[in-house]
Design a protein around this nucleic acid. Structure first.
Lengths: 136, 136
DNA sequence: TGAACATATGAGCAGATGTTCATATGTCAT
DNA sequence: ATGACATATGAACATCTGCTCATATGTTCA
């Protein structure tokens, strides 16, 4: 994994790199202590990653006004029912949606109200002046 | 792109699919009208996608306590400065961070306070009982 | 000026992601 | 039971992503 030690590097015993030169280590140590724990970071990233796809955003947005069955969602987001089902599986995995079976239909609902707050907050960022593609 | 029209489908004139059968079209039409506009969906997804990576979450988290130069960030997230620089470029692209040059150093700051609200909100979801991997 | 340094960026590559296709499971109507 | 239907899922495949390596740009100091 590790490439053949770069020539001319006389065994630096520090795990860090440039901070030992121009920054004071104490500052970094303090910063390091206030970082989010690793598992929180991973969970957070997993959640955001799931929201980071236009198809899934559309699905969640569609569900925000009430439950829908799979084929209704497929019609609304204009995608195959198979593709939608795959995405719903992912969303189910992180408990963002919840199914309710009614005969052969499966109605899905948002399972967490936080998600809509997240959307609102996200839209607020997007609509911030200057944060859109069409920056003049 | 479109596969050879499925045999036995007698020219359905509807753009939808199964809703014309078991759901009333009016309901779907209403839903369709209340969907987010396409560009909002895309912007939203782009933003969340950027937040959907553990490395970038760590970078933003590190910056949440104040500005840091590239090599300090690299030290904190334990990654090469090149990798960090690449990620910072993406974050800059969506105006999530902003650089300040000081000689040969580049200090980065969070450029949008909404981001931290997004993190808080996201953490609230993650910490929801039952939304963690360690579900008993 | 030239060497060391901090950062930026392009190419390349391994691994992840999202869709389609085929097929499986379970439900309803006949 | 049988066929039509709604959904779920696995495999395959093209695309995207994030890292590393090499290299370019711009700064500081001698």
């Amino acid at each position: 994994m590790i490439p053949p030690a770069p020539v001319g590097t006389p065994a630096a015993p520090d795990s860090d790199r440039c901070d030992v030169r121009h920054a004071d280590p104490t500052r970094l140590a303090a910063r390091r202590a206030s970082l989010l724990p690793a598992d929180a970071v991973v969970s957070l990233a997993e959640t955001f990653k799931l929201l980071g796809d236009a198809t899934r955003v559309r699905i969640l947005d569609a569900l925000s006004h009430g439950e829908l069955c799979v084929c209704e969602i497929a019609a609304l987001v204009d995608l195959s029912e198979s593709a939608v089902s795959h995405q719903l599986r992912l969303l189910r995995g992180l408990r963002l949606v919840r199914p309710r079976r009614a005969g052969r239909l499966a109605y899905y609902t948002l399972d967490d109200q936080h998600i809509m707050s997240l959307f609102q907050q996200g839209l607020r960022h997007v609509q911030e002046p200057g944060n859109v593609e069409s920056t003049s």
